[in-house]
Structures are given as structure tokens and as C-alpha cells.
Design a protein around this nucleic acid. Structure first.
Lengths: 162, 162
DNA sequence: ATAATTCGGATAAAAAATATCCGTAAAAAG
DNA sequence: CTTTTTACGGATATTTTTTATCCGAATTAT
């Protein structure tokens, strides 16, 4: 049971895009270099964010990515679902219908107690992530940086943004 | 992000063991046949449950597995952790320390806001599973079965148990 | 036109999950 | 004491998923 690295990268990239001046964008390559992650794979994650409507892409010369909504309106579950899909982590194989004492098919229209409990747990997981906005993340990330470091980030962003 | 099938099988097997008469046991092969899952792999999961202290094994002729505690004292997170381990699903790569604007190492003693949020979500997930005991599961599973089906299960258990 | 950049699909490599096998230890039964 | 049965542990093979790269096509600014 593990969350793909793409989710972590997408979250950090989104947090960085939240610091962009209005109407500016960062290209995929810049976002990859900022965290030293593989450019081609980072690009894939950005495309997924774009398809999910979380970021807005523009092609061609001076193209790049920016957030499609205010940071307060994007949460961590949005990003996770965009990268990993929103299918359940628990895959019920309906093994209760197997073997010498199977449950009848028509009594299996609803998930069994085990599957239900796992689905409930996943709902709790998702709700917890939904409660955290990119705005909060950006503030949290900036919080551990010194004024000097923040200055450096802002400088880098304005250098790279197009 | 997916939960291994072994977790599902272990939960169902545990629910079945909860229906065992006192001091009786089921061998690994029986537990595998009951749900028609691969015997060798089911045996692996049972060994993991044993190592975690959730079931008690006995070797040799007439050996097998039984629960090590009352069903009310075993919960779904216990079983999940026994099979999958209790390492976090979110693996923080500390990419905030990479690139042109890294965070200083000494300000990274605590996880970043992103990692913290995912850890919190996992805690919610685990707590939700912890709230469900094997007792509840057994009752839920039995609940969808007809009296006739339950009779069949009891018969099968008393035939196979040693 | 040319250069820069995203998009989408194909593909390759690495890692994890799934599954099997076998030799050993332990316990019961003959 | 020997045989049979069963769990245990490690090694290994197979399949699936994750991670990563590449390339041609589309799009946009200069």
C-alpha cells in the first residue's frame, strides 16, 4: 500500500505554482529542476493535473503551467486523485462467493462488512486530505524557510516564470 | 495506491476462525479452500498473522491456526498491519532539500506540511480500521447469510476443524 | 519560417505484489 | 522409534504496477 512519488512531486510543484505572480507560468522543465526530479516524469504528472483541471497549460514558445484556480480552492485530495485516479485502494474480490459455503449472488448486491469497513477508512483518508488546501500548504512550506530563503525562492520564480 | 489481496484474504480467514469452537483449529489448507484462494500464498498470510500474535499456530499432525485473542480484541488495522507492515504509504523524499532553493537541513527535522498532511490522513485511515473489530465483521458477514447457509458454514467448520 | 513547448502514445526499466516450491522443524499417531 | 502431518522460513519465479524515457504531432510566440 503505497502512494506514488508522482503525488508528492505534484503537490510540491503545485505549492510552487501557488507562489507565481498573476498570469505568469512555469514550464515543466523549470518545475522539475526546482526539486531535481526527472523532467519527463514530472511532465507526465503535470499533464495529469492539467487533465483534471487543476492547472492551466499553455503550449508553444513561452508556454508553461499555472494554477487553474485560487490556491484556497485546490486541496490535497484533488491532486492525489488527479495523479492516482480515484479508484478504491481496497479491491474486493468477492471471495465470499467462492468455496464450499458461498454466499448467494443476490445477497451480494452490497459490499460485505470487510469491504465496507475499508471503504469507510478510505473515505476518512480522503476527507482528511480534502480538508487541506494548497493555500495552507504554501504557508506551511514558507513557514520553515528563513526570510533569506524566501527571497531566493521569489527571485528564482521571477527569473524562470514566463 | 492499493491494498494487497493478502489483506482481504487474511480478514476473511480471521472472520472464519472467529467462528471456531473453543480450542479447535483450522489448517492453512482448509482456510485456503474455504475461499478458493492459492494455498501457498494464503499460508504466507497466516504466518504473518502468527508472527504478529493475532493467531496461534500449532505444528504437526492435527496442527492449524486459531485466533490468539477474543474476536472483540482484534481489529482490522491489526490485520492490515500484520500483512502489509506499518510503514507509511506516503514516502517523503525530502525533495524540499533539492534544487536551486533548498531548505536548510536543520529546518527539516520535522516533516514538511505536505508530508504531515498525508501522515494525518493515514492516521484517520488507521483509526477508522481500528474501530472495527473482528466480532463486528463476523456478525456482519453472518448477517447476509440465510439460516440455511449459516448452518452449512457451521457444519463445514466442525468437519474441518481439528 | 523557426524555435520552443505541451500533448499523447509507445516503450523500457525497476520495483513491488503475487505465487510457488522445497528443506527443516515439530507434533501426533501408529 | 518411525511415519505422517503440518507449520516455518527462505529461495525463487511470475505478473503487475510504478517509475522513467523517448518521439512525433500540435500549438504558439517571435
Amino acid at each position: 500500500m503505497q502512494i506514488s512519488k508522482g503525488v508528492e512531486w505534484a503537490c510540491h510543484a503545485a505549492a510552487l505554482m501557488a507562489a507565481l505572480p498573476n498570469d505568469k507560468a512555469l514550464k515543466a522543465d523549470s518545475l522539475a529542476r526546482y526539486h531535481e526530479v526527472p523532467a519527463a516524469y514530472m511532465a507526465k504528472q503535470l499533464q495529469a493535473l492539467s487533465k483534471a483541471g487543476l492547472v492551466q497549460s499553455s503550449r508553444g514558445a513561452r508556454g508553461g503551467y499555472r494554477l487553474a484556480k485560487p490556491p484556497a480552492e485546490i486541496n490535497l485530495w484533488d491532486i492525489t486523485a488527479a495523479i492516482e485516479g480515484n479508484k478504491s485502494a481496497f479491491r474486493c474480490m468477492e471471495i465470499r462467493q467462492n468455496g464450499p459455503c458461498p454466499s448467494r449472488k443476490d445477497s451480494c448486491r452490497t459490499p460485505c462488512a470487510i469491504a465496507t469497513s475499508f471503504f469507510d477508512a478510505e473515505t476518512a483518508f480522503r476527507d482528511s486530505l480534502r480538508a487541506v488546501s494548497l493555500m495552507q500548504i504554501t504557508m506551511g512550506v514558507m513557514n520553515i524557510k528563513t526570510p533569506l530563503e524566501i527571497e531566493a525562492v521569489m527571485q528564482w520564480v521571477s527569473d524562470e516564470a514566463v
